[in-house]
């Protein structure tokens, strides 16, 4: 059973790294705030996958990686709800959500 491909940790690490890279490239590439938020979710998903893979392949005694992945899910939910509220507020105030043109901090 141990020689199956899905029991090889490097594939999971590579997928997590790929998602991290896609997220960073999306953060750089997108101009609107919603696209950047989608890229941010990609980064958080990659981090969760990385934690679970390390927990399963490096130290499988305690399920701490799975627990921290659940905490990451809670943080992602809070972060995305607040970010979307801020984005809607910005769109009402400035009539666009392009991140390059947001230079004022004060409403």
């Amino acid at each position: 059973m141990s020689d199956m491909f899905y029991n090889n940790g490097n594939i999971y690490f590579f997928v997590a790294l790929f998602m991290l890279f896609c997220g960073i490239a999306g953060l750089v590439y997108r101009r609107t705030l919603i696209g950047m938020l989608i890229s941010m979710e990609l980064i958080l998903n990659g981090a969760g996958l990385n934690l679970v893979a390390i927990n399963r392949f490096i130290s499988p005694e305690n399920p701490y990686g799975a627990a921290f992945t659940l905490i990451i899910m809670g943080i992602a939910a809070a972060e995305s709800s607040l970010a979307l509220a801020i984005i809607i507020l910005i769109s009402k105030r400035y009539h666009h959500i392009e991140s390059g043109d947001l230079k004022e901090l004060k409403f």
Partner: peptide, 16 residues
């Protein structure tokens, strides 16, 4: 995110 895209309408247009 889908609700936000629908609320923003044309503001969430394309980028890149």
């Amino acid at each position: 995110i889908a609700f936000a895209i629908m609320l923003l309408g044309s503001y969430s247009g394309m980028s890149g």
